[in-house]
């Protein structure tokens, strides 16, 4: 399987990465190089094989549903590019 320019544009949109028109062509070439190489997986007989879901056999851990951290808004917004009081600031989303 290979991707065309429209598909590259669509996945860039899904990934929320702006891809200028002049870069679509070269990105398409690079992605197809990688996807072509990955194609060899289709030689493998996977009939009746379960997909791996956990690397090391282990029961999922449970913990009490309690607050373990928090209450420090100042620390949380400290790294934000733009804030107002303890809020993150984004461009207007509702007219």
């Amino acid at each position: 399987m290979s991707v065309d320019k429209t598909t590259v544009g669509r996945i860039a949109k899904l990934a929320r990465i702006a891809l200028p028109d002049e870069q679509v062509e070269s990105m398409m070439g690079e992605l197809n190089g990688i996807l072509g190489w990955i194609e060899q997986l289709h030689e493998v007989d996977i009939d009746g094989v379960e997909p791996m879901t956990s690397v090391v056999a282990q029961k999922l851990k449970m913990r009490d549903d309690v607050v373990t951290a928090g209450g420090d808004a100042a620390a949380i917004v400290a790294n934000a590019p733009q804030t107002e009081d303890d809020f993150f600031v984004v461009p207007k989303v509702v007219e």
């Binding site: 991707v3 590259v8 996945i11 990934a15 990465i17 702006a18 990105m27 992605l31 996807l35």
Partner: peptide, 20 residues
Amino acid sequence: HSRSQGFGAEVKRRVLIGTY
């Protein structure tokens, strides 16, 4: 635009492959 400017070429390739 933040992601386009902030990520380098290899990271973009992998994020796009992963998204696909």
